[in-house]
Design a protein around this nucleic acid. Structure first.
Lengths: 337, 337
DNA sequence: CCCTGGCACTCTCCAGCACTGAGTGCCAAG
DNA sequence: CTTGGCACTCAGTGCTGGAGAGTGCCAGGG
């Protein structure tokens, strides 16, 4: 049904349209790519491609532009992932090396990705759930208020204050701290819920209310908030023309952590680059945009995801290359620290 | 030179233009506000106001719009700060109460401010320099790598990793931790530099290289990074039409922490609401925007600044009201925690 | 059976044009 | 100082006609 030339034509249309942002006609096509057939032939091919739903004409006397289905075919069968240039790989290395801490790694990553692809970059914080507790610290702020700091072996630091039902003396705090560290140190966060459930028994009844408050804060920290952080950069790369409903909707969506989480979706396999085109997108508000994403992590654990958001009219091969490379490199960096 | 009526005319022009975003003519003006003179009279007044540089006409046959100088006069002499409605004050209260921790307070604040003013909100993290060390924690990540966590009495937690020149045993770490806490606990961050300068003498020569690495990381944390964080929200409120150079420039600037810091500028007095109009703005990239900002803090210490960024064509009285109210309320929240 | 050149057709884009209406500046009179 | 009247300016709008790009279709050739 679709012979090689027709596929080549589709590929050419996608490539041209992505780079020029103008509907591409039969004549331009034969000129620019050296298809050695006449424009009329191409027109016939295009008619078929249009019939099958891969391309459309915005209006009668214009060239064709790819449909979502067209991009889909292009990504699946017509293009590979474009490897980064040496210069780009260098850039990644110098940019990510020498980050201070986890926050810094994430911030640099997101900026880097935005710069490499000239699109909006989105990076999810590494999930806590796979990592282990390195240390728990309790610091009293007032006598009814405690600061809880939880340090994981991925270098992430979570903090929360806890309101206490009753005043708590320093030595009680010290005791509780010792208990927590004894029981939690080195344990996977995923297992902690069950461990904590048994802890109240090991506290004297008098101190139980305060301890319980602390325990529940720990649980909340791990369960409720742990995966909610997503960082965005490169909003300036959004070009108004590309978004029919206007930038506004997109910018609004980008400020909603929850929306971004849904956008990035489930951590898939490591190294697999996922492409969501236009309406394939899970997020209502961001239909009309495409997402190129991948999971990253240390070893073969997928910790979280990162990706690039842009108009459907996006340079997929390059974006995929950048996303894959950055995901790998961030994984390395995290493994080292 | 400018009698009362002329000032009233200017005020009316500013108000109308802000609400309609259309040049306002003499006839509309007499209709809408009940100035009991004829349009012709107003025209004469407008001619004077234009001559003095407070208003201009975009083109010959259009109404007038305020110049920056016009807004300036309006803000300085013609309008007060508009107090918030009861509902708005309620909203502030319910929105900010129940924040988990400092991060959460800042995040909620910036969103709240963006929502109240329908502009871009900018909030600087409370400066560390006025607060005191509550606790220092060292956690070994690998034998050549240490995680340093610094907790302040404002509830802020700073973290950094330190690379060690030599491996460090657990007991050495414990010793160093004890030393640090003994010397730093309760001290103002501003004083810490001088305290740390003297610490190396109190460490045995063998351990000095590692200790020195830790000390220098502490210094860096305090000096280099301490005020660099600014959070932004409400970018979606930017309307393309209002910015001649396009949104792009503005969005870019908003992603640059350094630029935002320069924008917010020095902490002024508490409660004083500062207004920077158009080119008065310190930041090149954000000329053409206006900033309404105020310092916030606990007691009468100004800890940092927050504000609202918008087109020069902005509802200053309302923005000033919101900024002032939010600044005060955040101050209270911080004082309580 | 597929490719090709030719041709008529469609439709967007743009420049030119006249017209309308909002708004002005100026002037002479109250 | 204020007012009504009047002539003037100019952005915006809608219409028209031509240019150009691109198409679909058809008949002829390999």
């Amino acid at each position: 049904m679709l012979d090689d030339r027709k596929l080549a034509v589709l590929r050419a249309i996608v490539e041209d349209f992505v780079s020029t942002n103008e509907p591409v006609g039969s004549k331009t096509l034969v000129d620019r790519h050296n298809l050695d057939v006449s424009p009329a032939t191409i027109r016939n091919d295009m008619a078929v491609l249009e019939e099958q739903g891969f391309i459309v004409q915005p209006h009668t006397s214009a060239g064709r532009i790819p449909t979502e289905q067209g991009y889909r075919l292009f990504v699946d069968r017509l293009s590979g992932i474009k490897p980064l240039s040496l210069a780009e790989r260098r850039a990644i290395e110098t940019f990510l090396t020498g980050a201070y801490d986890l926050d810094d790694v994430v911030m640099r990553t997101v900026r880097l990705l935005a710069q490499l692809t000239r699109q909006v970059a989105v990076v999810q914080y590494p999930s806590l759930i796979r990592s282990a507790v390195r240390h728990v610290e309790l610091v009293s702020l007032t006598d009814r208020r405690l600061l809880l700091v939880l340090i994981t072996d991925t270098g992430r630091v979570e903090q929360r204050t806890a309101e206490l039902p009753a005043p708590m003396a320093e030595d009680e705090i010290a005791q509780l701290r010792a208990l927590l560290n004894a029981c939690l140190d080195g344990r996977k966060l995923a297992d902690i819920a069950s461990i904590i459930a048994e802890l109240p028994e090991r506290v004297s009844p008098a101190e139980r209310p305060n301890a319980a408050a602390v325990f529940s804060v720990i649980m909340e920290t791990l369960i409720v908030r742990h995966e909610e952080r997503v960082v965005v950069s490169g909003a300036a790369n959004l070009t108004p023309a590309d978004f029919s409903r206007g930038l506004r909707e997109v910018l609004e969506a980008l400020e909603e952590q929850v929306v971004l989480m849904r956008l990035l979706g489930e951590s898939g396999d490591r190294d697999a680059v996922t492409v969501r085109i236009g309406s394939e997108n899970a997020v209502q508000e961001l239909q009309g945009t495409s997402l190129v994403a991948a999971a990253y992590g240390t070893g073969d654990l997928a910790l979280a995801r990162l990706g690039v958001l842009g108009p459907t009219r996006m340079d997929y091969p390059t974006a995929m290359g950048a996303v894959r490379a950055v995901a790998r490199y961030v994984g390395q960096i995290l493994a080292e620290s």
